[in-house]
Measured scan of single mutants.
Amino acid sequence: GKMTGIVKWFNADKGFGFITPDDGSKDVFVHFSAIQNDGYKSSDEGQKVSFTIESGAKGPAAGNVTSL
């Protein structure tokens, strides 16, 4: 299901970062391709987002990331 969290950091040059879930669980990796914004796929530190957890090649990753 959908979770909410805060972007801990995001490196636009490398195209990835981490989200800290609101439920206190482990930080989740986020790749720019998962960000659902139109246009520039980046996110700012401290941005509140909703997301799903997908199982990626390197473990859990955020999917369907949407700014709230």
Rank of each mutant, 00 (worst) to 15 (best):
G59D: 03
P60D: 08
P60S: 07
H31T: 04
S55W: 15
I35E: 03
V49F: 05
D44W: 15
Y40P: 09
W9L: 00
T4L: 08
I53A: 02
G63E: 08
G17Y: 08
S43C: 15
V65M: 04
D22A: 06
K2G: 06
D44I: 15
G1I: 13
G17I: 05
Y40Q: 09
S67K: 14
K8G: 03
T52C: 09
I6K: 10
E54L: 13
V65W: 02
N11I: 03
K48Y: 11
S55P: 12
T66C: 10
G17R: 00
N37C: 15
F29W: 07
K14M: 12
Q36M: 13
D27G: 04
K26W: 07
A34C: 08
N64Q: 09
G56R: 09
P21Y: 05
G56W: 11
K26G: 12
K2A: 08
A12C: 14
K14W: 12
Q36L: 13
V65R: 01
E45Y: 14
N11H: 07
V30N: 01
I53V: 10
N11S: 11
I19A: 00
A61V: 15
P21A: 03
S50H: 06
S42T: 14
G15C: 09
S43I: 15
M3K: 11
D38W: 14
D23G: 06
E45V: 15
Q47K: 09
A62V: 03
I53F: 06
G59M: 04
A62D: 02
D13N: 12
G59Q: 04
F18H: 01
S33C: 10
D22M: 07
K8A: 06
G59H: 05
Q47P: 05
F10L: 03
A57I: 12
D23Q: 04
I19R: 00
D27N: 07
P21M: 04
S43G: 11
P60K: 09
F18A: 01
E45T: 15
M3A: 06
G56I: 04
G5I: 05
G15R: 05
V30Y: 15
S42E: 08
V7N: 02
T52E: 06
Y40L: 12
G63S: 13
K8T: 06
S42G: 11
D27P: 07
T52L: 07
V49S: 01
A61L: 12
K2R: 13
F51Y: 10
G1T: 13
G59P: 04
G63C: 14
K2L: 12
D38A: 13
K8D: 01
E54N: 09
W9A: 00
V49R: 00
G17H: 01
S33E: 04
D23V: 05
D38R: 10
E54V: 15
G59N: 05
K58I: 08
D22F: 07
S42F: 15
S67L: 15
T20E: 06
G24S: 04
S67F: 15
V28K: 00
S25K: 05
G63V: 14
I35M: 13
S33N: 07
A62L: 02
N11E: 03
D38F: 14
G15D: 01
K8M: 04
Y40M: 11
L68N: 06
G59I: 04
G17L: 05
S43E: 07
K41V: 11
G1W: 08
V30C: 08
P60Q: 09
S33P: 02
G56N: 10
N64A: 07
I53R: 05
S25A: 06
S67P: 14
I6G: 02
D23M: 05
A57L: 13
L68V: 10
L68F: 08
H31L: 07
G17F: 07
K58S: 09
G5T: 02
P21E: 02
V49T: 00
D13R: 13
S25Q: 06
G5V: 05
D23N: 09
E45A: 15
D27S: 05
G5W: 05
S55I: 15
T20M: 10
D23F: 06
I35G: 03
S50L: 08
F16L: 03
K14E: 04
F18P: 00
M3F: 11
I53Y: 10
E45R: 15
D13H: 12
K14Y: 09
F32Q: 09
P60I: 12
I6F: 10
P21T: 04
D44V: 15
I19M: 01
A62Y: 02
T4N: 05
K8F: 06
S55T: 13
W9Y: 07
G63F: 14
H31K: 03
F10Y: 09
V49K: 00
Q36Y: 10
D13L: 14
T20L: 09
K26V: 11
L68I: 13
F29H: 01
K26F: 08
Q47A: 12
Q36H: 10
N64I: 06
A34Q: 11
Q47W: 15
S55E: 13
F29G: 00
D27Y: 04
G17E: 01
M3N: 05
I19L: 05
D13P: 05
Y40F: 14
M3D: 01
K48L: 10
N11G: 03
G46P: 09
N64M: 08
S55G: 08
A12R: 14
G24I: 02
H31D: 04
S43P: 15
K2H: 10
S67H: 14
E45Q: 14
V30L: 14
G1S: 11
G39Q: 10
G39F: 13
A12M: 11
F18L: 04
I19E: 00
A57Y: 12
S50W: 08
S50A: 10
F32T: 06
P21L: 04
D27V: 06
T52R: 05
V7W: 10
A62F: 02
S43W: 15
S43A: 15
N37M: 14
G39H: 10
D44G: 14
N64K: 09
V30H: 03
P21Q: 02
V28L: 09
D13G: 10
V30T: 02
F18C: 09
Q36P: 07
Y40K: 09
S25W: 04
Q36I: 13
I35V: 07
F29D: 01
V49Q: 00
G39T: 10
G63N: 11
S67R: 14
F10P: 00
Y40N: 09
K58H: 12
T66W: 06
P60A: 08
A61D: 03
S43Q: 10
F32P: 02
D44F: 15
M3V: 09
D27T: 04
I53K: 05
K48S: 07
G24C: 08
F29K: 02
D44E: 15
K41N: 11
V30S: 01
I19P: 01
T66L: 09
N11D: 11
Y40H: 10
T4F: 09
V7C: 11
S42L: 14
G24H: 05
D13C: 15
W9N: 01
V28M: 04
D23H: 06
K26T: 09
F16A: 00
N37E: 11
I19V: 03
V65Q: 02
S25R: 06
M3W: 08
S67N: 12
S67G: 09
S67E: 08
T20A: 10
D44N: 15
G1V: 13
S42P: 11
K8W: 05
G24T: 02
V7D: 01
N37K: 12
S33H: 06
Q47S: 12
Y40G: 11
